[in-house]
Design a binder for these strands. Structure first.
Lengths: 146, 146
DNA sequence: CCTAATGTCTCTAGCAACTATAGCTTCAAG
DNA sequence: CTTGAAGCTATAGTTGCTAGAGACATTAGG
């Protein structure tokens, strides 16, 4: 049995985070030693590793909660797990597309900064004027106030 | 002069967000009408557009605060603005790389889910076992508890 | 065996960047 | 003149932790 510190070290999760996961019900309440310290066995370790891995993949704690409750019922269809993973994949693909566009715009900004004065700085200028950039702008010219 | 609702609509920023920006000092305190309602002119609109655009590009409010104070001193060198933008670019590049790796792993997981039972589900399995994935795993086998 | 240094305990508050709610007042349209 | 939308303030909630305070537990060294 491991104390919370050892578990955290082993799983690459900080101690307060483990206590937090217990608090919100992602981890079951741990056994306690005579001196009231939490003790963890292999099952807790595996559950924590599952959580950490899913977090690394960008799943929200809510999604992880769902996945964990699915994995507790191994005889059910895995369609739900598949759906959660697919949703996560779609989410990541959309973030990826967005970030790629942002990167392009930032690169343009940075390249165009000639190292002069603020008044001529493309970074400031581009940020201040939607029409200078390629990304969606949400208000028509007509609505710009006087 | 625009009321807060019109300004928000025009700039694509929600009303409580505008009040929040004022509260934390990103926007100056707005003029008020006789009935104590906020009124905004073109300068406020431009400042808000600047903030929204920078937020869209992923800059933190802190970075935006810095950029705004730079843009208030147009005679200074733009090296600082350039540095902020470059840092943001580096940050985005790193997130991009990470997301690309995650996407690959999620795709593998999803493809391998044969549509059977949870017990055989690759999604659950891969999440539960670090050794089945390609990403960094932070604890050596020797530290896995009994 | 005692002490000092860690480690753990609970509880509370804080972080970013908003979002939502409650209970008002003010404004614009009919 | 009334009604409904939009505004006001103030407070609390969100997600996923992280940091502190002050008290108890455990362990390593002398």
């Amino acid at each position: 049995m491991l104390t919370i510190g050892k578990l955290g070290e082993a799983a690459g999760v900080k101690v307060p985070t483990i206590r937090y996961y217990e608090q919100i019900g992602l981890l079951p309440e741990a056994e306690r030693s005579a001196g009231n310290q939490r003790l963890y066995g292999r099952k807790a370790m595996e559950r924590l590793a599952f959580i950490r891995h899913a977090r690394d993949l960008g799943f929200t704690l809510e999604a992880i909660r769902d996945l964990l409750s699915l994995s507790d019922r191994p005889d059910q269809s895995c369609a739900a797990a598949d759906a959660i993973a697919r949703a996560q994949l779609a989410e990541i693909e959309s973030r990826l597309a967005r970030l790629t566009a942002l990167k392009a715009e930032l690169e343009r900004m940075v390249v165009q900064c000639a190292g002069g004065k603020i008044a001529d700085c493309r970074v400031i200028e581009v940020l201040g004027d939607h029409s200078l950039c390629a990304t969606d702008h949400r208000y028509p010219e007509s609505e710009v106030p006087s």
